[in-house]
Simulated scan of single mutants.
Amino acid sequence: MAVDDDGIAGAKSSLSLVTNLTVAILVILWLIPTIGLLVSSFRDRDAISQSGWWKAPFPTQQNFAVRTEGEFMPEGDGWVLTGNLFGPEGSGSIAAFGGLRSDPTAFAPGETGELVRGRTLTVEENGDYIYFDPADEAPTRNPTVYLASSVPPDFSLDNYDTILTSAGMDVAFINTLTVTIPATIIPILIAAFAAYALAWMDFPSRGAIIALVVGLLVVPLQLALVPMLKFHNAIGIGQSFYGIWFAHTGFGLPLAIYLLRNYMVGLPRDIIESAKVDGATDFQVFTRIVLPLSFPALASFAIFQFLWTWNDLLVAKVFLPSNSESWVMTVKIADDLLGSRGGDWGILAAAAFISIAVPLLVFFTMQRYLVRGLLAGSVK
Score class of each variant (00 low, 15 high):
Phe72Val: 05
Ser326Phe: 04
Ile271Asn: 07
Gly76Val: 00
Asp128His: 13
Ala11Lys: 09
Pro88Val: 15
Pro204Arg: 12
Ile163Arg: 03
Gly266His: 08
Pro359Asn: 00
Ile130Val: 15
Arg206His: 08
Ala297Asn: 10
Ser340His: 02
Arg261His: 11
Gly252Ile: 06
Ile303Met: 11
Tyr160Val: 00
Lys276Glu: 13
Trp54Val: 11
Asn126Phe: 14
Ala299Gln: 08
Gly87Trp: 02
Asp77Val: 07
Gly127Ser: 03
Val66Tyr: 09
Leu229Gly: 10
Arg117Trp: 04
Phe283Val: 12
Leu255Met: 14
Asp312Tyr: 06
Ala195Met: 09
Leu189Ser: 13
Leu217Lys: 03
Lys317Ser: 14
Asn126Ser: 10
Leu314Arg: 11
Gly243Phe: 07
Pro359Leu: 03
Ser91Ala: 10
Asp4His: 00
Gln61Thr: 11
Asn311Met: 01
Met169Ser: 09
Gly207Phe: 03
Ala191Leu: 01
Leu348Gly: 06
Ile190Thr: 06
Gly70Cys: 12
Phe319Asn: 13
Pro33Ser: 13
Ser13Ile: 05
Ile190Asn: 04
Pro139Asn: 09
Thr287Trp: 12
Leu337Tyr: 14
Leu147Ala: 14
Ala350Val: 01
Lys12Asp: 00
Gly250Met: 12
Tyr263Met: 14
Ala352Asp: 04
Glu75Asn: 13
Leu189Tyr: 11
Ala302Asn: 13
Asp103Tyr: 02
Asn311Pro: 02
Ile48His: 04
Ile237Val: 15
Asp5Phe: 07
Met1Pro: 03
Leu85Arg: 01
Met264Glu: 04
Asp344Gly: 09
Trp345Gly: 05
Leu291Val: 11
Pro204Met: 14
Phe193Lys: 01
Asp158His: 04
Phe107Val: 00
Glu114Val: 05
Pro359Arg: 00
Gln367Met: 06
Val379His: 00
Ile354Phe: 08
Asn175Ser: 05
Gln239Tyr: 07
Leu29Arg: 02
Phe107Ala: 00
Ala334Val: 02
Leu375Cys: 07
Pro359Val: 00
Arg341Val: 08
Asn126Trp: 06
Asp46Val: 12
